[in-house]
Design a protein around this nucleic acid. Structure first.
Lengths: 124, 124
DNA sequence: AAATTATGATTACAGGTGTAATCTAAACTT
DNA sequence: AAGTTTAGATTACACCTGTAATCATAATTT
């Protein structure tokens, strides 16, 4: 699995919003939430390329970046990894921990029910 | 939140198995799964103490370590953090990602149903 | 054409991390 | 009592990370 740092992920996440995109577009998108210097974001873009998380094409002297994987694919791997590390690979204990500490809303419950429902339908 | 590295967490996890415990007991427990040198584990214990994740009492020249928090408490915080970062704080999309990629077993579904059930009962 | 600007590349630098080795002193052996 | 072992403390060191600044160069402006 490609290992991304927190900051690297946030840059990639800004690209996932809409891609391909140039560095300046990504910087623009991040400018609301983060106080990062433009140089910082460029450094992170470079590291993402080096790690194989992004590819780019040249357009004049600019680069046009594209993620090398989909967000869902990446977050799935991260999730598996997380659940393996903290809950021996079982997902229910994670949800159960939320329930016990009153972190679940009725909306969460409804959404979870739907996921279960869909899963069962799909099993037929 | 106390931030622990991967390796630090694994050492703490070995202590959570049964505590209080001495360094040598922890080293013994980890010896099956990890190829860590004894010195490495001692370094990690020291870092855990420094970060405030462990406390200890002296017993002759040995230390007897105790975690400063419960496992469930720590994993809950990590989970919240994780879900915030990758799923904007919503838990259902994480579970849904597992479902879509066929990572859910019937057992997982049963366990999830029980969590939901218990939650609903508790709401009365 | 010269000056300025903007882009990516390279360099910087402190603090965290994995992975120990060495040091120091107390406890145990002989 | 002297030597040896062992526990924790200190030091080591390369790579990762956050956070840029500087450099080289191509494009744009004047």
């Amino acid at each position: 699995m490609i290992e991304l740092s927190k900051a690297e992920f946030e840059v990639l996440d800004a690209l996932w919003l809409n891609y391909p995109a140039t560095a300046s577009q990504i910087i623009e998108r991040l400018s609301d939430e983060k106080q990062w210097h433009e140089k910082t974001i460029k450094t992170l873009l470079g590291r993402l390329v080096k790690k194989g998380a992004l590819s780019f094409e040249k357009d004049g002297r600019q680069y046009i970046y594209t993620p090398c994987m989909e967000r869902a694919e990446y977050t799935l791997k991260e999730s598996q990894n997380f659940i393996e590390r903290f809950f021996s690979g079982r997902i229910a204990p994670l949800v159960s921990g939320f329930a016990k500490s009153e972190q679940l809303s009725q909306q969460d419950i409804n959404e979870l029910k739907k996921v279960i429902d869909d899963w069962e339908k799909q099993q037929k």
